[in-house]
Design a protein around this nucleic acid. Structure first.
Lengths: 114, 114
DNA sequence: CCAACATCTGCACAACTGATCATGTGTAGA
DNA sequence: TCTACACATGATCAGTTGTGCAGATGTTGG
């Protein structure tokens, strides 16, 4: 069992990636750096939402920003996050999705054992 | 850019792991299967909270349950989740944590350029 | 200086989340 | 059957989250 602080940190990273908007943003950044409006378009978000999301991601240092004039180019900050995304993504692509977020009724196959 | 459904699925998996309680539960399960009350103790949760959390985890098939009498033994369902946990955990342990979830004031060093 | 542009920020609100309390379901033992 | 036990579930309520709107900041060009 890892240190408690690490667990908390880990939970926060997962939390960042659990937002559909933020996740889309991060995924888009796998291809290289992008400016805010391109990011917004790629993620299907408004520029406002994008900027808000980027603020969070920035605060947690999972993205890095490069300024050039009035543009802001964002990129994945860590190889960490990238591999995390890649590993996770590889898995969901090989996994039968569970779009029913609830169990049918019983998971007891024995229900009809007779 | 992966399929939209995969992204949504991915976000949900991350969401599962973003709860401190659920994450503790999952982490505890890395060592092997445990019953609900042991799990509750390991994660520092009430049994009710544990059961609720387990319900969610079960619904997403990230844990598997084995019944024996009135006991329920839980274990990680997929090698997927295990490696995801391991990868992520390895990273946070090698990463300088960012416990200040907000930026100081400005990230613009030029602010005082004269 | 002034206008246009790209991005950032604060506020208010609806939607979601997680924990607790009380209760229900199923099993073990007398 | 009845009690004790281990776990599951539903309702509820407070705290958190994400989004749009409006306004602010800093940059480019004339």
């Amino acid at each position: 069992m890892p240190a408690d602080a690490d667990v908390a940190d880990l939970a926060e990273v997962f939390g960042l990636l659990s937002g559909l908007g933020r996740l889309h943003l991060m995924l888009a950044l796998r291809g290289g750096e992008l400016c805010v409006s391109d990011l917004a378009e790629a993620a299907g978000l408004s520029e406002s939402a994008t900027s808000h999301a980027l603020r969070i991601l920035r605060a947690h240092r999972v993205v890095a920003v490069r300024r050039s004039g009035r543009m802001a180019y964002y990129a994945l900050a860590d190889a960490h996050v990238r591999s995390l995304l890649d590993v996770a993504l590889a898995h969901v692509e090989h996994t039968e999705p569970v779009h029913s977020h609830d169990e049918p009724a019983h998971s007891r196959e024995e229900a009809a054992h007779g």
